[in-house]
Amino acid sequence: TGYYDVLGVKPDASDNELKKAYRKMALKFHPDKNPDGAEQFKQISQAYEVLSDEKKRQIYDQ
C-alpha cells in the first residue's frame, strides 16, 4: 500500500489536503482512542512525514 492510499488522498493532493487527511486519520487511529490502531497510526504518521516534506515527496514519487 502506498503512502497516498494510507492517507486516502490522490497523488496530486495539495499540502492542505494532505494535512486535513492526516489529521482525520490520526484522530481515528490514535492509540488513545483506538487501542488496536497503534500500527496503523504509525503508518499514517510515516506517510505524512514523507508526503508533507517536499524533498522526501519528490524522491518518493520517482
Rank of each mutant, 00 (worst) to 15 (best):
T1V: 14
T1I: 14
T1S: 12
T1Y: 15
T1L: 15
T1P: 11
T1G: 12
G2C: 15
G2V: 06
G2N: 15
G2R: 12
G2S: 15
G2Q: 12
Y3R: 01
Y3W: 11
Y3M: 02
Y3V: 02
Y3T: 00
Y4T: 00
Y4Q: 01
Y4F: 07
Y4V: 01
D5P: 02
D5I: 06
D5A: 12
D5H: 09
D5L: 08
D5R: 08
L7W: 00
L7D: 00
L7E: 02
L7C: 04
L7H: 01
L7K: 00
G8P: 00
G8Y: 01
G8K: 05
G8D: 06
V9A: 04
V9N: 00
V9W: 01
V9D: 01
V9G: 02
K10Q: 08
K10S: 12
K10W: 06
K10T: 10
K10P: 11
K10D: 09
P11S: 09
P11I: 08
P11E: 04
P11H: 10
D12W: 13
D12F: 05
D12P: 02
D12H: 10
A13K: 01
A13F: 08
A13H: 01
A13V: 10
A13Q: 00
A13I: 06
A13C: 13
A13P: 01
S14F: 02
S14E: 04
S14Q: 04
S14T: 13
S14P: 03
S14N: 10
D15V: 13
D15S: 14
N16W: 14
N16Y: 13
N16S: 13
E17K: 02
E17S: 02
E17I: 04
E17Q: 08
L18G: 00
L18T: 01
L18S: 00
L18N: 00
L18K: 00
K19Y: 14
K19A: 12
K19L: 14
K19G: 06
K19M: 08
K19Q: 13
K19N: 07
K19V: 07
K20F: 09
K20A: 15
K20T: 13
K20P: 01
K20R: 13
K20D: 15
K20H: 10
A21E: 00
A21I: 01
A21Y: 03
Y22H: 03
Y22I: 03
R23I: 15
R23N: 13
R23W: 13
K24C: 14
K24S: 12
K24Q: 10
K24A: 12
K24T: 07
K24Y: 09
K24L: 12
M25A: 10
M25S: 03
A26T: 08
A26E: 11
A26K: 10
A26D: 05
A26C: 15
L27H: 10
L27S: 14
K28W: 05
K28R: 09
K28V: 10
K28L: 15
K28E: 12
K28A: 13
K28N: 10
F29G: 02
F29P: 01
F29Q: 02
F29H: 04
H30P: 02
H30V: 02
H30G: 07
P31Q: 07
P31E: 06
P31H: 07
P31D: 11
P31R: 03
D32R: 07
K33L: 15
K33P: 02
K33Y: 14
K33R: 13
K33M: 12
K33F: 14
K33C: 14
K33G: 08
N34E: 04
N34D: 10
N34I: 05
N34V: 06
N34M: 06
P35S: 06
P35H: 06
D36T: 12
D36R: 09
D36N: 12
G37H: 15
G37R: 06
G37I: 06
G37E: 09
A38Q: 09
A38G: 10
A38S: 08
A38L: 12
E39T: 07
E39M: 07
E39A: 09
E39Q: 08
E39P: 05
E39G: 04
E39N: 07
Q40D: 09
Q40S: 09
Q40F: 14
Q40T: 09
Q40L: 13
Q40V: 09
F41H: 03
F41D: 01
F41K: 01
F41G: 00
F41P: 01
F41R: 03
K42P: 07
K42Y: 10
K42L: 11
Q43L: 15
Q43N: 09
Q43R: 12
Q43P: 03
Q43V: 12
Q43M: 15
Q43K: 13
I44S: 02
I44F: 03
I44V: 08
I44Y: 03
S45D: 06
S45Y: 10
S45C: 14
S45P: 02
S45L: 15
Q46W: 10
Q46S: 06
Q46K: 12
Q46D: 13
Q46G: 06
A47Y: 01
A47F: 02
A47T: 00
A47V: 08
A47S: 05
A47G: 03
Y48F: 10
Y48R: 01
Y48G: 02
E49R: 12
E49F: 10
E49M: 07
E49H: 10
V50M: 05
V50N: 05
V50T: 11
V50C: 09
L51Q: 00
L51I: 05
L51P: 01
S52M: 14
S52L: 11
S52D: 03
S52H: 06
S52Q: 07
S52W: 06
S52A: 11
S52F: 05
D53L: 03
D53M: 03
E54M: 13
E54H: 15
E54Q: 13
E54W: 14
E54R: 15
E54C: 14
E54A: 15
K55S: 11
K55C: 14
K55E: 09
K55T: 14
K55G: 08
K55V: 12
K55M: 10
K55N: 09
K55F: 12
K56R: 13
K56A: 11
R57W: 04
R57H: 03
R57K: 06
R57M: 05
R57C: 05
R57V: 03
R57D: 01
Q58M: 13
Q58F: 12
Q58G: 07
Q58I: 10
Q58S: 11
Q58Y: 12
I59C: 12
I59M: 11
I59T: 11
I59R: 09
I59W: 11
I59G: 07
I59A: 12
Y60I: 04
Y60T: 04
Y60K: 03
Y60H: 02
Y60V: 05
D61R: 02
D61W: 04
D61C: 05
D61Y: 06
D61P: 06
Q62I: 09
Q62W: 07
Q62N: 10
